[in-house]
Design a protein around this nucleic acid. Structure first.
Length: 512
DNA sequence: TACATACAC
DNA sequence: AATGGTGTATGTA
């Protein structure tokens, strides 16, 4: 499988993308060299002292360690690909990916055997696997499937929170407690939690014909790692006991922890830290070489001591709104200027739709050699008009253009957001706003196939259907639910999110 | 506040 | 021949 690396290398070598990536890596290497130099200058006393300071932090984290909750992370398996395979049986047994020639969003497991991965351009995927079938994204479908998944999750925790269309967190502690009050035989709390999650996954599967994996642990950080352990179509339970948590983490690659990415894991590797357990052993170096913020999150990763919340916090609001696009590189200022106008128009619409205005406007650009730059302007008054956005960014574009290098991307962002006149106030967008509505003009129950008169009715029906109470399973499909005589009106012309987007569904959002 | 970087999905 | 878009957080000046 070293071949995979070689094929990718072969296909990339010499390209501007590749060159840029190499340059970036050189910068990282240089940073690491400087870090190691600094490290070699530390005296044993310095390190001992740093360790003592970290021990204080550790004690503090131990003190606040909360093992009282059952947090669940649910992750749909190869989500987009799974939806396409479900709807097109001919794709079932072939290597396939969802996306385009320039970017793949997901691949199925057959394609993964060839090294075809998310975030890989399609043309490289085809080099790795000539039979690869590439299916374009169909977000309406993924949204509809996600809605069903969410409907199930809501039954286990009405305050669940989605991270994206295919992934979310629940706190099922209360649900477990309720269950324990009834007759659970001689099942322990832990067993009940696992059974409930198994049932939830089964319901998701029944409703969507898609599989989900899940992790159950004392906090979201651990639950997320756990959901990856028995993927696909599996679950993993990590007991809520300090020794079990520490044992689990000791050998776990640091890269598995959300927040430790490419760069930080390279830095850590240079310090001979590749496992979470080693974060604790080398805490002195962590203290001396990383920022306070990074120290804290690394110690949390080593100890598995993270707050148990599922992203619930009430008064958090959206910080920025942006739109950007990639195109064939050009230095033609008329063309770029026209595009900038369109982007400002788009951003203006997005801001208005969300009832927001921005005081800081940022132009983003990427040169043909993949160098990214941003130019920000702060206005006297917050705005949401295309004209003002354009006025704030056009001069910056002109300045950058005078360098003469062709551009391959332009983007505009509004930040320092405030509520527009008469709007509700800067707040997080609701899930519905961000993901759009389920595209089911005939509100058809995915379990029994009958139609309901409205979304609300359908929801209620699906609840009953999942509970096995609707019609006792004896009735035929097709009869409307709730005595409805006619199929409902197609659907209320609510604004649809246009699906020019490729993968933009950061919905770390609380449902409201 | 401006800009760059890292990260997630 | 060819490598995405949206958003958050953080470090630094």
């Amino acid at each position: 499988m070293i071949q995979i690396f070689q094929i990718i290398e072969e296909a990339s070598r010499g390209s501007k993308f590749y060159n840029h990536k190499k340059q970036r890596q050189e910068k990282i290497d240089e940073r690491i060299r400087r870090m190691l130099e600094l490290k070699d200058s530390f005296t044993p006393e310095q390190i001992t002292r740093a360790e003592a300071q970290m021990d204080a932090l550790t004690a503090q984290l131990e003190q606040s360690r909360d093992l009282s909750r059952f947090i669940v992370h649910v992750d749909m398996d190869a989500f987009y690909a799974a939806v396409e395979m479900r709807d097109r049986p001919e794709l079932r047994d072939v290597p396939m990916a969802v996306g385009s020639n320039s970017m793949l969003s997901t691949s199925n497991y057959a394609a993964r055997k060839f090294g075809v991965r998310a975030a890989m351009p399609g043309f490289i995927g085809r080099k790795l696997c000539p039979q690869l079938v590439i299916v374009p994204c169909d977000f309406e479908k993924y949204r509809a499937a996600s809605q069903l998944v969410q409907q199930v999750m809501a039954r286990y925790d009405p305050d669940f929170s989605m991270v994206s269309l295919d992934e979310g967190y629940l706190d099922i502690t209360d649900r477990v407690a309720t269950e324990m009050d009834g007759d659970t035989g001689d099942q322990t709390e832990d067993e009940v939690a696992q059974r409930l999650v198994g049932e939830m996954r089964a319901e998701i599967c029944r409703l969507t014909r898609l599989t989900a994996s899940a992790g159950i642990a004392a906090n979201g950080m651990l639950a997320k790692i756990c959901s990856d352990q028995n993927k696909p179509d599996g679950q993993f339970f990590l007991p809520r006991e300090r020794p079990a948590v520490l044992d689990f983490l000791r050998e776990l690659p640091v890269r598995k922890v959300s927040g430790i990415g490419n760069v930080l894991s390279q830095q850590l590797a240079a310090l001979e830290v590749t496992r979470c357990g080693e974060l604790l052993e080398r805490r002195g170096l962590v203290r001396l070489l990383f920022s306070e913020c990074t120290q804290l999150s690394l110690m949390r990763a080593g100890l598995g001591a993270d707050p148990p919340g599922v992203g619930r916090d009430e008064d958090s609001h959206q910080k920025s709104v942006s739109t950007e696009t990639t195109f064939a590189a050009t230095a033609d200022s008329a063309q770029l200027s026209e595009l900038l106008g369109e982007l400002c128009q788009q951003l203006s619409e997005d801001l208005r739709r969300k009832g927001l205005r921005g005081r800081t406007v940022t132009l983003k650009l990427k040169t043909s050699s993949f160098v990214v730059r941003s130019r920000a302007t702060t206005l006297a008054e917050p705005t949401s008009t295309a004209a003002a956005l354009l006025a704030a960014t056009r001069p910056a574009l002109a300045r950058e253009l005078s360098a003469g290098e062709p551009l391959r991307l332009l983007g505009v962002r509004a930040s320092a957001l405030v509520a527009a006149e008469g709007a509700a106030g800067p707040r997080q967008a609701t899930l519905t706003e961000m993901t759009g509505r389920a595209a089911a003009p005939r509100h058809e129950c995915p379990v029994c196939g009958r139609t309901a008169g409205s979304l609300a009715e359908l929801s209620a029906h699906v609840e009953r259907c999942l509970d096995g109470e609707a019609g006792g399973g004896g009735e035929q499909n097709g009869g409307p639910v709730g005595g409805q005589k006619r199929p409902p009106a197609p659907h209320s012309g609510l604004p649809r999110t246009k699906h020019k987007r490729i993968d933009s569904f950061f919905t770390a959002v609380k449902r409201s």
